[in-house]
C-alpha cells in the first residue's frame, strides 16, 4: 500500500510541478494546492499505513497508527489553506491592478 501511495505522490508531484511552471497564475495556484495534497499523502505514508487502529486511546487497542504524522498534516492542511487563500487573492488583485493573469507580462519594470 505504502509503495502504491508513494507512486501516486510522484504522479501528483509531476502534475503539480508542471502546473507551477506554467505562465498562468491560476495554474500556478492550483499546482501549489495539488503539491500540498501530495506532501500530505507522503508524510502519512512515511509513518506506515494501516498498522493499527485510530489513534484514540478510548479504543483500547493493542496498537495504534502513528499519530505524529497526523498531527503534522493537520497543521499543514490549515496552513496550506491560508497560503492558497493568500496567493489566490494576490492573483486576483494583481489582475485588477495590472489587467493580466500572465506571469510573463507581470515582470518587474526594467529600472528595478
Amino acid at each position: 500500500m505504502e509503495s502504491l501511495i508513494i507512486v501516486l505522490v510522484g504522479v501528483l508531484t509531476t502534475v503539480a510541478i508542471y502546473l507551477v511552471l506554467s505562465k498562468n497564475v491560476v495554474r500556478v495556484i492550483l499546482g501549489t494546492a495539488i503539491l500540498s495534497h501530495a506532501v500530505h499523502l507522503l508524510i502519512l505514508s512515511m509513518g506506515g499505513l494501516k498498522l493499527g487502529t485510530v489513534p484514540l486511546l478510548g479504543e483500547e487497542a493493542v496498537k495504534y497508527v502513528d499519530a505524529l504524522p497526523q498531527a503534522l498534516i493537520l497543521t499543514a492542511i490549515v496552513i496550506s489553506f491560508a497560503v492558497t487563500a493568500f496567493i489566490l487573492v494576490l492573483a486576483y488583485r494583481a489582475y485588477q491592478e495590472l489587467g493580466t493573469d500572465n506571469l510573463g507580462a507581470m515582470r518587474g519594470s526594467d529600472d528595478e
Binding site: 505504502e2 509503495s3 508513494i6 507512486v7 505522490v9 510522484g10 504522479v11 508531484t13 509531476t14 502534475v15 510541478i17 508542471y18 511552471l21 501530495a38 507522503l42 505514508s45 512515511m46
Partner: peptide, 16 residues
Amino acid sequence: AIGAGVTITLIGLTVN
C-alpha cells in the same frame, strides 16, 4: 516536472 516526480518517488520508496 517528471524529473522531480521521479525523484520524490524514489526518495519516498527508499525511505519506506
